[in-house]
Design a binder for these strands. Structure first.
Length: 614
RNA sequence: GGGGUCGUAGUUCAGUUGGUUAGAACGCCAGCCUGUCACGUUGGAGGUCGCGGGUUCGAGCCCCGUCGGCCCCGCCA
């Protein structure tokens, strides 16, 4: 028989009572986290979102409550009335903030019972959590875990800090529609059928890009929004089909102003939420430099192990695989794993398999090891290498020197197309850092990456696509080159060299924000559509309203969007985006709790004029 | 679309060369217990070995297929 709450109110949460509260009469409410029954008295760990407080029910002093306590089970919801009493020295629990006291119960109200949980919330050893699919099915239970409670609240604080930052600086929060129109550029759209306009569809925003630019044309000057975005693409550990961005835009703005706001916003969030102070001025790196030194446009600066170019040393080599790579304008680069010359054949095979995922043909290596029979007292060392036969001792020594090898080091070499070398060595660098624990978990290393390329070359179609989005402005310095590339068919390849006023904010190897200064002049915009192989007509069909808008007095403007989840992942120290979302989906974009996506009623489909084939 | 990996009790896992009745811990149920906080203790219940097919005298284990979780490549302007 359950009790009713009536007008009873709690006086305290389960996380706040301390020695100073001894003697107070209190009412606590929460979940039974644990019960320890000693016959004549019973301990209950009562949990709410703020913590755990031990309450004790004695048969001697509270006969009725004690009888009720007998029937309590895990996760029952109860209210207890009682008195805060000090625990005896030796009976204190130093693991709990409330461990100096306990509540001596006079009355228990059983507000609700609970089925036995399908998995245990907290397990000894803490890492033996139930399988994630089980926890996702009962997400509301998993969310009771203190860790997830903390993450979700951290996220709330981060969003609050963002609003605080932009409100204070005169930005106006403007909501934009969720029901938009599909455009062919970019990610696959989620699509919503229109009932009133049978056969037509809305699309959910991949980002509010065009709308935020329109707020600039509308004269709001400074806009921001915490915007939900939707992309129907395959998922990753840091990607969900729907996610949240801080979206901002400002008028009369150049890059430096955007950098300032990116730094300012993240610095505010990290200080406010995590007590972490990031540098007032973030280091900067061009895209080209980041790719050259780290093989990534989002380098993790918490450790070194930079890429070293060996192409110079290998120029004119007879070794056919390297010669052909250099001939076709590829690269040969390496990283040096300090002190890892003891890697086994098996480990090196694993690493080779790892880089092959990124298109690398092979992974060559050089080891600086003790000579057979020991190095003696002079500490000498010799080089061994998978390339010894192919290149000879002298050349291996040259390479080792170029790589800056010392005794005990392992050099890992990849040759191939520039994009393959960068991707494979960039990923290998991170893989080794993880394996060898080279990453300082307490460090936060932000970076602004600048001068992104304007276009990406698609090797299969030999076409150029917008690297950022089709409204990104080219750099002033590259404007002439841009015009030449577009207008002179024979110079089309120059598009690959045009840099954009596009930039990213990177923290600890995560792309946390990205943005650009936009094109605000119609002739440049027209040029860009042409560069992208879009005819005037098709550009009009897709973006006509926007092109019109650009012609009614568009101020220079730009901004950025920041990933709320990725930012929170860093703040929460997790590598899993689901840890910072209340109700996430699986890697196959399903919600295991509500079992979505689901079927819809035939009548519903009929009303929409939709028939399912197959 | 492709690759890797996992799937055995409610949960986390073990399960040898294919061989009798598939085990452990936690949880659960019942009892005992005056200071626990990973309480202790006695007893008990609990299994479609993801699913389907095959090989075999015999399959949790081998083979084929399939479903699902996670991670990665492609993809994500």
């Amino acid at each position: 028989m359950l009790d009713v709450l009536g007008t009873l109110e709690r006086t305290n949460t389960c996380g706040e009572l301390q020695a100073g509260n001894v003697g107070e009469s209190v009412v606590l409410m929460g979940w039974v986290a644990k019960k320890r029954d000693f016959g004549v008295f019973t301990f209950i760990d009562l949990r709410d979102r703020e913590g755990v407080t031990q309450v004790v029910v004695s048969e001697e002093t509270a006969r009725e409550a004690h009888a009720k306590a007998k029937g309590l089970r895990g996760e029952f919801v109860i209210a207890v009335k009682g008195e805060v009493v000090a625990r005896d020295e030796g009976a204190k629990n130093t693991k709990l903030p409330t461990g100096d006291i306990e509540v001596k119960v006079s009355e228990i109200l059983v507000l609700n019972d609970a089925n036995v949980l399908p998995f245990q919330l907290e397990v000894a050893g803490s890492e033996n959590l139930a399988a994630e699919d089980t926890r996702l099915k009962y997400r509301y239970l998993d969310l009771r875990r203190p860790q997830l409670q903390h993450n979700i609240r951290t996220r709330a604080k981060a969003v609050a800090a963002i609003r605080e930052y932009f409100d204070e600086r005169g930005f106006i929060e403007i909501e934009t529609p969720i029901l938009l129109k599909s455009t062919p550029e970019g990610a696959r759209d989620f699509v919503v059928p229109s009932r009133i306009h049978t056969g037509k569809f809305f699309a959910l925003p991949q980002s509010p890009q065009i709308l935020k630019q329109l707020t600039m044309i509308s004269g709001f000057d400074k806009y921001y929004q915490i915007a939900r975005c939707f992309r129907d693409e395959d998922l990753r550990a840091d990607r969900q089909p729907e996610f949240t961005q801080l979206d901002m835009e400002m008028s009369f703005a150049h890059q430096e102003m955007a950098y300032r706001e990116m730094q300012g916003m993240f610095n505010h969030i990290f200080a406010k939420v995590g007590g972490i102070s990031l540098p007032a001025e973030w280091p900067r790196m061009t895209y080209a430099e980041a790719m050259r030194r780290y093989g990534s446009d989002k380098p993790d600066l918490r450790f070194g192990m930079e890429l070293v170019d060996l192409s110079g040393e290998l120029a004119g080599t007879d070794f056919a695989p390297f010669a052909s790579v250099l001939e076709s304008k590829g690269e040969i680069k390496c990283i040096v794993a300090k002190g890892k010359a003891d890697y086994s054949r098996k480990q090196l095979d694993e690493l080779q398999e790892f880089v092959k995922r990124y298109g690398a043909g092979a992974l060559a290596w050089i080891k600086a090891v003790e000579p057979e029979g020991g190095s003696g007292s002079d500490g000498g060392w010799v080089l061994t290498s998978s390339l010894l036969k192919a290149l000879g001792e002298e050349k291996i020594a040259d390479l080792a020197k170029a790589a800056g090898v010392e005794k005990g080091d392992l050099v890992l070499i990849v040759a191939g197309r520039k994009s393959v070398v960068a991707a494979s060595l960039g990923a290998l660098r991170i893989e080794i850092a993880k394996r060898e624990n080279l990453i300082d978990r307490a460090a936060y290393k932000p970076l602004i990456v600048t001068e992104f390329p304007m276009f990406e070359h698609d090797e299969e179609t030999d076409r150029y696509a917008a690297a950022h989005h089709p409204f990104t402005s080219p750099m002033d310095e590259d404007l002439e080159k841009f015009k030449t590339a577009v207008n002179d068919e024979s110079q089309h390849h120059l598009l690959g060299e045009v840099r954009a006023k596009a930039y990213d904010a990177v923290i600890n190897g995560y792309e946390c924000a990205g943005g650009s200064i936009r094109i605000h002049q119609k002739d440049v915009q027209a040029l860009n559509f042409k560069a992208l192989g879009m005819s005037t007509e098709s550009a009009r069909v897709q973006f006509g309203f926007f092109l019109d808008a650009l012609e009614y007095g568009t101020p220079p403007h730009g901004g950025f969007a920041a990933g709320i989840e990725r930012t929170c992942m860093i703040l929460c120290g997790t590598e899993n985006i689901r840890d910072v979302m209340a109700f996430p989906k699986t890697a196959s974009a399903q919600d295991l709790m509500m079992d979505s996506p689901g079927d819809v009623d035939g009548a519903q489909l009929k009303e929409l004029g939709i028939a399912i084939s197959d």
